[in-house]
Amino acid sequence: MQYYSFRAMNTEVLMAAEGRHERLEVGFRKTREFIEACERRFTRFSPDSELSALNRQTGRWFRASPDLFAVVHLAAELSEKTDGLFDPSVLASLEAVGYDRSMDELRAEGAAPVATADVAVRTGGFREVRLDRESYSIWLPPGARIDLGGIAKGWIAERAAGMLATYAPACAINAGGDLFLCGLPTGLPHWQVSLEDPRDPEQTLAALRVPPGAVATSSVTRRRWLQGGQERHHLIDPRTGQPAKSEWLSVTVIASHAAEAEVYAKALLIAGPQGASDLVGRVNGLAYIAVDREGRLWGSTVSKEYL
């Protein structure tokens, strides 16, 4: 197994692949170029990105690239499937609680204090999004600016792994804890992925045995900051427009597709133990592992086979 790592999408990206060194060198380079191009398209932290251009045109039709259209289309489908628990149009709320610049900058500079009452709450905006498949056009409701952070990261990781797989029979992309795995390492029946303890990143809670496909984790302990003395995190509950208050600290989902894993991890974390059964009932065979404040693991009955 050969490795290649670099920083992109505000996180560490690790690529791993089996194969001939010369061929993998080309594969790693091309995959990195693809990831960096996608990042330029999907970031909300650059005014030059295509996503920022879309967000400047809410209330009007926007002709998008096939890639942006694909991710927004996927987001609309998954928003409906999660009954609005996943809603990319929470960007105004996210900015109001201080996440208005990249996490690296936020940690260095701190967030501007905003009174809770001033936090813009705009919920359910994504339900009104309109899409025209013929012309790849997107219409966002007025003021419903969107953040595609997590879902785009998952989508990029899966596409990038597919690209790397043309150079290697077994490969994996790890984009800040969101993984997509292709093929199987020689002689092994599964990939092994360590489940990080959200209370202490140095510790591992379990070793997951994962088949080719996606693994994604959402956590409320990693992207945290202080705003006016109040602790904030990046997972906004679309029902309140505020950072989610969940009994769980992290949720990991194992699925066939990375965007789906990323979205369900987020939705399950927001839903918590009470709402999880509704969500799991709607998605047959959804495998997830949640970690509570005591470090105990929870999940669906199918989750056991991955431990």
Binding site: M1, Y3, S5, T11, L14, A16, G150, K153, A172, N174, A175, G176, G177, D178, L179, P185, W191, Q192, V193, S194, L195, E196, P198, P201, T204, L208, V215, A216, T217, S218, S219, V220, T221, R222, R223, S250, T252, E262
Partner: peptide, 11 residues
């Protein structure tokens, strides 16, 4: 130890 860095964590 063949892939020590493959950890899933919150993003």
């Amino acid at each position: 130890s063949f892939m020590p860095s493959f950890r899933t964590r919150g993003s």
